[in-house]
Design a protein around this nucleic acid. Structure first.
Lengths: 220, 220
DNA sequence: ATTGCCATTTTGAAGATTCAAACAACTTTC
DNA sequence: GAAAGTTGTTTGAATCTTCAAAATGGCAAT
């Protein structure tokens, strides 16, 4: 049985590999896990020994199929727990991250399946992140962001990719949650600003960096 | 912050001291925690150092007020989680113990309070064990109610807490007086209904509110 | 008292995870 | 291509929790 530390390492390798290269850098991993680089190296070597990931010294790491299986299961737990906390216990969607980070290592597959059924087998958590199913399948769809989409079209926010409490609070204050109908009124690359119109009236000025963290899809 | 190991030691000291002498023996404690006696000695010395319990070498241990506070909080978490697993997730009451043993160390006080509210502030878990309140008070004499007890077990009504003539008339009409042997056939939280079987044949549908006013205890 | 038995404590060691700080290997800059 | 910078690894040590096995203290029976 994987310890919570092992689960955390695998989860973060999965998250970091999701958007980017084939190999996850040691520096990025150490930073995500809030440990010093040497610690990550030690742990990664031991995980490689256990066959959970592949370590190419001085280059980076990659999950093995077995490591990916474990990581997807942890991610599934994390996101279903977040969904439960928001939809059933009515907790603030920006506060549930740290709760789920602890609970994801303590909940059994059996309890999780019942939670899943209770919630009606959701496919995305309150942040819009896809929830892997019991067999580790993830919705692989690629979305545009507020920084890259066409202007003037009616859109719907599907996902916020920066889960820091700080960013989520910002998103909430500007009414930019998953499900919200929005439109990009103007985009000024020189100024690094995107003007977003919510519903039919409200405008918000959002930085290009922030806009790039908000995924959208055309609203039919 | 107490580690889960520390929490487990304190919880078991509380449980063992509850039904017994002033001092809990090291042997009993080690057995309850499934560690060898030497391990318990080591840990107990460190807990005594931290002021969480009092250790009289070769005699036994006793919780300090601070240790008791921590232990009661863990017990509260354990029993509320069990209640949630049985009443909301419909898990088997005999299977929830081990689940709760893991979850009790991962759940925050905030989530717990919301769970408590969701469950209607139950005073006893599905096994009939009393649930400490947020301030660590255990009611001196705590009984389960028809709204909170295990289903399928033979029970005896011990008390009706609503003394209004109207409610007592209702109770009488349904044959739900103190001393009556009853069993909860089914409980549907969504519908707010409890199906009570009296003796061997008669069934009554009782609202959750009414059921919560009828105290029961396991019968012989 | 001496013997033996039991529970408890001590001792020495191990595994998991972490850090600080020294070291090594690539990259960029001039 | 040498100096400087960045990134990753190694080393040594610490903490926490555990075990196995040896030592100890107290009690009961001889």
């Amino acid at each position: 049985m994987a310890s919570s530390t092992v689960e955390d390492y695998l989860k973060h390798v999965l998250l970091l590999s999701e958007r980017g290269e084939a190999l996850v850098s040691m520096g990025g991993l150490a930073q995500a896990l809030e440990v010093v680089p040497g610690t990550a190296t030690t742990m990664v070597k031991s995980l490689a020994q256990s066959g959970l990931l592949q370590h190419r010294p001085r280059e980076g790491v990659r999950l093995t199929p077995e490591g990916r299986r474990v990581a997807l299961n942890v991610l599934r737990k994390h996101r279903l727990i977040e969904t439960f906390l928001v939809h059933v216990l009515k907790m603030d969607w920006s506060a549930v991250h740290t709760e789920a980070d602890r609970l994801e290592h303590a909940i059994s597959d059996e309890v999780l399946d019942r939670l899943d059924a209770l919630l009606g087998h959701p496919v995305a958590d309150p942040h819009g992140d896809p929830i892997p199913n019991r067999h580790g399948k993830l919705d692989a769809q690629v979305y545009a962001t507020l920084a890259t989409c066409v202007t003037g079209r009616n859109l719907r926010i599907v996902r916020i990719t920066d889960q820091s409490a700080e960013f989520l609070r910002f998103a909430e204050q500007n009414g930019l949650q998953p499900g919200t109908a929005v439109r990009v009124a103007d985009r000024n690359l020189a100024a690094g600003l995107v003007t977003v119109r919510r519903g039919n009236a409200t405008r918000s000025a959002v930085s290009l960096v922030a806009a790039g963290k908000i995924l959208v899809e055309p609203s039919h």
